[in-house]
Design a protein around this nucleic acid. Sequence first.
DNA 1: GTTTGCATGTAAACGGTTACATGATTGG
DNA 2: CCAATCATGTAACCGTTTACATGCAAAC
Lengths: 177, 177
Amino acid sequence: MDVRTICLGILTRGDATGYEIKKLFEDDGYQHFVEASFGSIYPALQRLTEEGYVSVRSEAQEKRPDRKVYSITPQGRSQFIASLLKPLPEDRHRSPFVFAMLFADLLPQSRVSGMVDAYISQVEQKLAHLNQHDSASKPEGDKFVSGFGRAVYVAILDYLRSHRAEIETRLAAEAAE
Amino acid sequence: MDVRTICLGILTRGDATGYEIKKLFEDDGYQHFVEASFGSIYPALQRLTEEGYVSVRSEAQEKRPDRKVYSITPQGRSQFIASLLKPLPEDRHRSPFVFAMLFADLLPQSRVSGMVDAYISQVEQKLAHLNQHDSASKPEGDKFVSGFGRAVYVAILDYLRSHRAEIETRLAAEAAE
DNA sequence: GTTTGCATGTAAACGGTTACATGATTGG
DNA sequence: CCAATCATGTAACCGTTTACATGCAAAC
């Protein structure tokens, strides 16, 4: 899912500025599955406007750049739905942590433990974040996705806590340094 | 983790050609967390050679391009380890499926069911793949990672099977088409 | 007879991030 | 006083994918 499509999706939930779209990615629990930078959001919104999938109204502000509030158009909405009707691209996960774990035997034990600790607390944080922003009032999809995230994070924590020893307990890790 | 680093990592396990490295990504259970195309592997290997992190020997073949077998050098090895010692970039997951689920209420129920079915069988396949390529003989890291993958996939399947109704049961989905 | 496997590589296109430019206001 | 929030945008760069080019051998 490219930034264009993600922007359209967010705009189906209501009007927003580029700045707000970025915030939604970070704060509202979407952040676990999508993210994007200003450098990609603003141009995407411009192109979507040119193509007629969104419309803009400028709200003048004193001592700040004008707020440009974007709304999805009917064409944008059906374009968005169409994109959900055609075959979805596959998931891609890139986990430097998991990759590193493959080579645990090349690293000092302390480094491996450090990585596992860091990863656990990262996941704990994400889980906490998910629990804070409760989606009870939001569309069914949001609840489902939020539950999905929770299930995955809990599984990861369980696994790491009960299996970390296997990768930390080793005799000699001469390799590094 | 960029393709360069991934190549180095694979070469710590033994010599390989560009072609074989690609195969390893696909077949050997690494595939769940990393992948790369020829278009990135071959140039990466060339650059690593220039920089002295790997060495090549050409094995002539009849009626085929020469096999170029790459080996990691001592410098490559310590470079690789160094890259695992510095702070790891965060994981990134992009899941078009999960994204689509956020907007289940805009889609016909049949499409949502179809997506869930497709996703479930995709995950089932990955799980089966993981179970086939058993890593019993491989380094501890491989077993750990393989267990990690299994844990995540199982959690996903459990969640989808027990919660799919929440997103499929709805009265009226006029939106689409 | 067509697909799959072996085997290497290049070039263009793509999608995205990072850094830069600008600048007032509010909260700690 | 400094950091964060609000607010938009551009340009250079980067890593990767996709498509192309080449071509035989074996399996189905």
